[in-house]
Design a binder for these strands. Structure first.
Lengths: 238, 238
DNA sequence: AACTTGTGTGTCCGGCGGACACTGGGTGTA
DNA sequence: TACACCCAGTGTCCGCCGGACACACAAGTT
């Protein structure tokens, strides 16, 4: 690790005030930033202690002075990547525009860090910023007649939809309209999957956004149905 | 690997027709079954070539005679675990009861194999049974006025909801109403997350099914809104 | 000047997926 | 009957992974 070039620099480069320039001190933030860079560029699978350490020009064990385990590093990565939760107070028009705005912001964040779906599956601790995002969405439903549990379920439903549309090929449903080899295999077995074949080859009217717009509109329409049924106090129909 | 007990058995146990009983030959199916047993019991993280091989009493390299890589083993596991897709032709009442039935069946399958969400995230090949499940759901929407792309988006939306409700703590939204330590931390920071705190502590009217029923109802209501708007040919309201 | 503390290093471990050469029993053929 | 071939299963090796632990070494403190 002690590079010869480093010594040469020491001899030849001007030094500031007698103290050696010396590389920047390691901090949790610098580690998390480096790990996020790796994940953004090469995916979650490339995030190993060695790889992250190499990017910072230290040994992997140096990282353990600042994080206790890889799981903790990932947790810090997530908390840093999701960013500050938004304030939707200024969005006019009630719960629906607020949720649309929230969903768009969250989707944009997740789009910038495609590894977030992979990193956030499974049991793990939750950080304050992540909670803040949820708070923000739950608050958007404050003036609806939904119960507390229903508000949480609604937020979970939307955030789940973001996760699903951001991670490709989630349930084996997605890439058929675009992936050429899949279209080909579907064509070959069209006798076995007639409805799917017809749906995948018929002229599509949906935007190519992984079902994002379609799903969000359905979910919000469904919420509207529930909310409207509550707003009108019990009418004659069950 | 050559067990003494095996030799003893050879000497003492009756043998059928002169041929030694000899352990069962390795097949892809036997390997997949063993891997599924491991995953069901100990989770996806415990599925390693060595672990699976040990369960079959062979060396890990023996598995590579039947699958080319671990990824292929996982693919075979999934294809085997999802089972035969259902035939919904006999379900009366139109698209909605058919989709409800489909969702219940799929949810039950995924409940039996909690590792399916983890195993099916990320790029991977898709098997015919998995496609068959999608076919089944798309076919359920055959007599609706939805376009092909919309049918696929609708199916993706529902299967994504299944995935989300089956994998716990998906977006940091779920376990707050149940997990005691999370309730405690939320109580401690209730000033910072007032809407969430109020929602999580207010008397809940939702069943404790991870938002499954709530979300499915919202999605189907949203689909109904779209379908109804198509069924009535363009009326006066936009 | 000696001690403590905090930060990065070097080495080791078990487990992972996988490449590759080998072996030994069953079978088809001479 | 003898032999060669075939191939499923074995043993060994490699590089990478997360992580434990002892150590080095500079900066303060007393």
């Amino acid at each position: 690790m002690a590079e010869l070039a480093e010594h040469v620099d020491l001899l030849w480069e001007p030094r500031g005030r007698g103290a050696r320039p010396q590389r920047q001190a390691l901090t949790v933030d610098r580690i998390a930033d480096a790990a996020i860079e790796v994940a953004d560029a090469e995916g979650m699978a490339a995030v190993s202690m060695q790889h992250v350490a190499a990017r910072l020009d230290v040994t992997k064990m140096a990282l353990y002075r600042h994080v206790t385990s890889k799981a903790e590093l990932v947790a810090v990565m997530i908390e840093s990547a999701v960013g500050e939760p938004p304030d939707l107070g200024s969005v006019p028009g009630g719960w629906r525009p607020r949720l649309v705005r929230w969903a768009d912001l969250m989707r944009e964040t997740w789009r910038r860090h495609p590894w977030l779906p992979a990193a956030t599956t499974g049991e793990r601790p939750t950080g304050p910023r992540e909670v803040g995002w949820t708070e923000s969405a739950v608050a958007a439903l404050a003036d609806t007649p939904l119960s507390g549990g229903e508000r949480m379920d609604a937020v979970f439903l939307i955030s789940g939809h973001i996760r699903n549309t951001q991670s490709s090929a989630t349930a084996g449903t997605q890439p058929w309209t675009t992936d050429k080899s899949l279209r080909e295999v579907l064509h070959r077995h069209r006798g076995r999957f007639p409805a799917l074949f017809e749906a995948a080859t018929s002229p599509g009217t949906t935007p190519n956004d992984n079902g994002w717009t379609f799903g969000l509109t359905r979910i919000l329409d469904g919420l509207a149905t529930l909310i409207d049924s509550r707003d009108q106090p019990p009418s004659d129909d069950a």
